[in-house]
């Protein structure tokens, strides 16, 4: 544990400028309600409170490599309890997006799953659950893909038998071309996230 932490504002500035909702951490008073509220708190290396403090202390690598920023279940418990009204989830998602865009995949499965999810929306406008699972399983190559598929095969068959899987592939929405140009424009003009 470092005892003489000096504050380095350069990373905080980077976060305010480039990370979606990053400037919201200015309101944090370090009470720890977010950490206590999180369903996955036991598995996090640094809970949100600590992440916000580390941003101010300039701990760039520790923050961007923290497992917690990619572990948010988006349950909004921290957010409704935060006495300073910080949209904690938006900040965590913003940090995760920023880290992933820099090639940091601390929770690789979650990052890959989320990216596949987004790519499918970009491709067709909608999500095809079975196709999403297949792409996610095979994102790491064919061997891992077969292994992961076999682990989930029983569940897949059960769902198919109970009519809870779409047989036909998802068709593209009619406005897919214009949707894509909208999303391209948003990705180009928004920040790592966007300013609000």
């Amino acid at each position: 544990m470092e005892t003489n932490t000096s504050y380095d504002p350069s990373f905080a500035r980077e976060v305010f400028e480039n990370v979606d909702s990053g400037e919201e951490i200015k309101m944090c008073m370090q009470c720890g309600m977010c950490a206590a509220s999180c369903p996955l708190r036991e598995h996090m290396d640094y809970p949100p409170r600590q992440i916000f403090s580390m941003i101010r202390a300039g701990k760039r690598d520790m923050v961007l490599n923290a497992n917690s920023i990619m572990m948010c279940t988006s349950c909004y418990t921290c957010q409704v309890r935060c006495p300073r009204g910080i949209p904690v989830i938006d900040v965590m998602h913003g940090l995760a997006h920023y880290a992933i865009s820099k090639g940091i995949l601390t929770r690789k499965d979650t990052a890959v799953f989320g990216r596949e999810f987004w790519q499918q929306i970009y491709k067709t406008g909608r999500i095809d659950e079975k196709d999403l699972s297949r792409r996610y399983f095979f994102a790491d190559g064919i061997i891992t893909g077969i292994k992961k598929s076999l682990q989930m095969a029983r569940m897949g068959i059960i769902m198919l038998l109970h009519g809870r899987m779409k047989i036909l592939p998802e068709k593209k929405i009619k406005g897919i071309k214009s949707l894509r140009s909208m999303l391209d424009k948003a990705m180009q003009t928004g920040k790592g996230g966007s300013e609000v």
Partner: peptide, 12 residues
């Protein structure tokens, strides 16, 4: 949904 942030920014 709740996982698109992995690939998309907030504006998108």
């Amino acid at each position: 949904a709740s996982v698109s942030y992995a690939g998309a920014n907030d504006l998108a």
